[in-house]
Design a protein around this nucleic acid. Sequence first.
DNA 1: TATTTGACCAAGA
DNA 2: ATCTTGGCCAAAT
Length: 107
Amino acid sequence: MFKKSARSLLSFNEKVWELCKKVPKGKVTTYKEIAAAMKTKAYRAVGNALKRNPYSPAVPCHRVVGSDGALVGFARGLKKKAEMLRKEGIKIKKGKIADFEKVLYRF
DNA sequence: TATTTGACCAAGA
DNA sequence: ATCTTGGCCAAAT
């Protein structure tokens, strides 16, 4: 058997990025959902990971929003994030996702 | 190794 | 509805 490594080869952050890439265009996800998908409650750490986002263009981090569908935090500015999402077919209303439930992607 | 930091969240005033 | 507080977890320093 293998050693006592019950821990995945991927770092927590890497998992986050992988999940982000899974989100299809035209859909969004939340920090909480990502954390839940990883069987953890570290939604905060998720945000931290995305903030660093070493793979800036490779990972569509703009598709990740707050649990309320609010556009929380974006390194390039929330304004930009809103436009990018709108471009993908997601409607933004007053800094929040319109029809949040509809565009929310679940793993 | 210990402390600080966050792109969060839910509940309270 | 807005603001504050406490809790939560992993990564970075």
